[in-house]
Amino acid sequence: MIRTLTAADLSAYRALWMMGVSQEPSAFLLTAEEVVATGEAALLAKLAGGEVIGWFQDEALMGFLAMRRGGVTRLRHMADIGPLYVHPQARRAGAARALMAAVEAEASAAGILQLELCVDVENAPARALYERLGFVQIGLRPRSVVIDGVPRDDLLMLKQLDTPRNA
């Protein structure tokens, strides 16, 4: 089941986010320390704003995906997505694809014309998923992040929602 996360999901969301950051730091912008330091009020505001959806298995949160629409008028046609994280035990069950489809449907219904994301160039499984879903690389951000003193590059990817996939 997929649904928008609410304040009642705060502890499960924080726990899954922390697990992901700890086990796969290159998949997240924030460090574990920054996740821990993120205040409850900020997270509650994010959840209250409907920015995060979750994938549930037997009522347990097993995956999440955030979407943030552009804030100013000239950016309202686009939304940034991510992070996307699925618990290792729930992988290969279609959770990531379902979360992405739900965000895409929500974005289209809201009149958003394109989705944008960043992904670590070395994260081959995520890159392959995004490509299968119709995202295309539009750029490279060298040294996008530095993890434990090591610079990492990100691919910038985009999916136009108002253009047929084979156009």
Rank of each mutant, 00 (worst) to 15 (best):
V36Y: 01
D120C: 07
L43V: 13
A66D: 13
I112E: 11
R127Q: 08
G149S: 01
E40S: 14
H77V: 08
G82R: 11
L161V: 05
V103D: 10
Q89I: 00
E116K: 14
G134D: 06
R141N: 09
R92T: 09
E51W: 06
G111H: 11
R141G: 07
I112A: 09
E122C: 10
G71H: 14
A79L: 09
S144F: 03
I53V: 15
R92D: 10
E40C: 09
G50K: 13
A42I: 09
V146L: 01
C118W: 02
I53T: 07
R132T: 14
G39I: 00
D80H: 05
D162Y: 03
S108D: 10
A27M: 04
C118G: 12
G149M: 06
L10K: 02
R14A: 07
D162N: 15
A93I: 01
M1C: 00
L75G: 15
L133Q: 15
M100V: 09
D120L: 07
G54K: 12
M67I: 11
I138H: 02
I81K: 06
A8V: 03
I147Y: 05
D9A: 06
M62S: 10
V86A: 02
S11A: 13
Q137C: 00
F64P: 04
E116F: 03
F56N: 06
V145L: 15
G71D: 12
Q137S: 05
P25S: 07
V35A: 08
E131A: 15
G50Y: 03
Q89H: 02
E104C: 04
Y13H: 15
A98S: 14
G71P: 01
A48S: 12
G20H: 06
V52L: 11
L61K: 08
M62L: 06
V119I: 14
R143K: 14
R69G: 12
G20A: 03
A45K: 15
M67R: 15
H77W: 02
V103S: 07
G20E: 07
D148F: 04
T73G: 07
L155E: 00
R92I: 00
E106G: 09
P88I: 05
M157A: 06
E24Q: 09
E59H: 01
F64D: 09
A167F: 11
L29T: 12
A27S: 11
